[in-house]
Each structure stands twice: as C-alpha cells, then as structure tokens.
C-alpha cells in the first residue's frame, strides 16, 4: 500500500494520502526539510481525475464567497471548497481543495493531472493550496503566517516584517553572513503561541533568496522594515503595531472566526513582544544595530 507523505510545518503535521492510481509523491526541494513523522493534525487524501460534481455532490447551498484571479472559495454544508486555476472556457478547476468545517480533514482533487510520472505525483501541496490551508488553520491554532523574514540567534527568534520589495531577502542574506545566525525563511514566517509563549517557525515558502528552514525559536523581538539611508529604531504604539501586524499577516478573509482570532493574536503579540520600526541600510551595519541595541537586551 502506498505510503502517505508527512510534512511538519509550524508544529502542524500534515498527512497526504495517495489514492486512485497515485503511488507516491515527490517533493520539491523547499519542502524536503519539512518531511517528518508523527501523529497527523491534518489528513488530506489525493484523488485523481475526480469529478468535481460528484465530489461536491450532496453539498447543497454551494455559494462562491471569495473570488480571485487564481482561485475561488465556496462553502457548502459548512465545508470549505477552494477551486484553483479555473478554466476560462468552462470554469472547471484544475485542482480542488475540499475541507471539513474544522479544516483538519479533506481532499485534494486533481481534475487535470499534471506532474504525474510513473504514478509519482510531483508536489501535491503546491502554491497556493498549501498556504491557503495554512492561513485558514493557523489563526484557529493560536498562530499567523506573516509576510516577513526571520532568523534564530542564540536560541531566540527575530522577525522582520514588510511587503514585497521591503528588503526581507536582502536582510536575510546580510544576517545569514554572521556566525551563529540561522535564517528561518526570507519571505514567510509562521508565528504560534504554545504553552503561553510565542514561537517563530521557518516555512517552505521562500522569497528571492530561496532560504528555508524547518527550525523554530521563541520570539524575542519583531521589526517593521523601512528602507532608509541610515539605521535606526523607533518605538511604535500598540494600536500602530496591531494594525501593521494585521496588514502584513496572511488572513483567511473567507472565515469570520479566523479573522477575529487573527486580530486577537496580533494584539497579544503587540503587548507581549518588543517591537520597533527598523529603518535600515542594505549592508552589515543593519545587523550590527539589531545585535547591539536589541539582541543584547532580549
């Protein structure tokens, strides 16, 4: 019997089961550090050539609630249905992610099989299926996926937040040159509260520097990036931190409960972890300032 693929991301174990002619999976290299064992928290079955109508069969009251250029979200009988890469001809999706109301059990349905060689499916967990599942789950598990880079230094985690072009990959490379610094990711970091403490986790979803790590560290400080001609730190008010953190988190806009939890987590982080706006230059002086002014005191 084909074995399932297990991935552990942010201490959440995903089990992906091959069925229906799929003998196994191959992993893209950004996922290999996340292959793991353990009791799964989320179980996904892959179904090949599934008829979306049959799969969705019996689901009454289907309604598209969220629509983008790449995917849409429907809800039917409390179940979450994400349709990906809709054909302009017949609106038929290439893949479907159908999840139970708690997001912990579901199916990945391949209506158009691509990347299947000798029964081995390449990357069942591809963009944006993986991240949409993660951002739906995390707020319900005391967590957030944040648009940021982050590193671990002396067993503490530091998070640098900003949108595309803010300098996350550049800063990751600068920090990574320093002895003892372990970069967790240069574009997406998961934050979770466990046993009353916030942790930062590397994820497989890298930016242009292509840095991934499956390690974690207790969160000791976080920063909002601002490119500048000199390096400086500025304290921010709690409401400012909450609104910025909310903005730079990936949010489940289709889930009222998830959005409420995400906002609460932003507030919780803002009041419990040191935070600054970090104006920085793209060179070694940036890391030096963080090391002297923040790392020494946290």
């Amino acid at each position: 019997m084909p074995e399932d693929l297990k991935l552990k991301i942010a201490d959440i174990v995903f089990s992906i089961l091959p069925t229906d002619g799929i003998k196994g999976f191959s992993l893209n290299k950004n996922y290999t550090p996340f292959a793991a064992d353990g009791e799964p928290d989320v179980v996904l079955e892959t179904i090949r050539n599934g008829n979306p109508l049959l799969i969705k069969g019996g689901l009454s009251g289907e309604k598209t609630l969220f629509n983008t250029t790449l995917w849409n979200y429907e809800q039917a009988d409390g179940r979450h249905i994400f349709n990906f890469s809709l054909s302009p001809k017949n609106n038929r999706p290439q893949r479907i992610l159908a999840l139970e109301p708690d997001y912990k059990k579901g199916k990945i349905i391949l209506t158009k099989v691509r990347g299947l060689k000798n029964g081995i499916l390449q990357s069942p967990f591809i963009y944006p299926i993986d991240q949409l599942l993660m951002i739906s789950l995390l707020p319900l598990m005391q967590g957030l996926l944040v648009h940021s880079c982050g590193f671990k230094y002396k067993n503490k985690g530091y998070l640098f937040i900003g949108q595309s072009g803010a300098g996350k990959s550049t800063l990751s490379q600068i920090a990574g040159r320093n002895k003892g610094v372990h970069v967790l990711n240069d574009d997406r970091i998961a934050v979770r509260k466990k046993q009353g403490r916030f942790y930062v986790y590397g994820t497989p979803w890298h930016g242009t520097a292509e840095i991934v790590s499956s390690e974690k560290a207790p969160l000791a400080g976080f920063f909002f990036l601002k490119k500048d001609a000199k390096n400086s730190l500025r304290e921010l008010s709690v409401p400012d931190i909450v609104s910025r953190l909310f903005k730079f988190s990936f949010l489940p806009f289709w889930d009222r409960e998830g959005i409420a939890s995400a906002l609460k987590i932003c507030e919780d982080i803002a009041v419990s972890i040191p935070c600054f706006e970090f104006s920085f230059t793209p060179d070694d002086r940036a890391f030096e300032l963080i090391r002297k002014e923040v790392i020494s005191y946290t």
Binding site: K29, F84, S123
Partner: peptide, 18 residues
C-alpha cells in the same frame, strides 16, 4: 504557465474572476 522550477511549483493563473 505551470511552474517547472525545480524548487517550486505553482498552479497556472487563468484570467477569471476579479
């Protein structure tokens, strides 16, 4: 197009929706 980059994979984006 569907990604062929060895380090990543992406579903193709067809113009549909808003």
């Amino acid at each position: 197009r569907t990604c062929t980059n060895a380090s990543c994979a992406t579903l193709s984006a067809n113009a549909n929706g808003s």
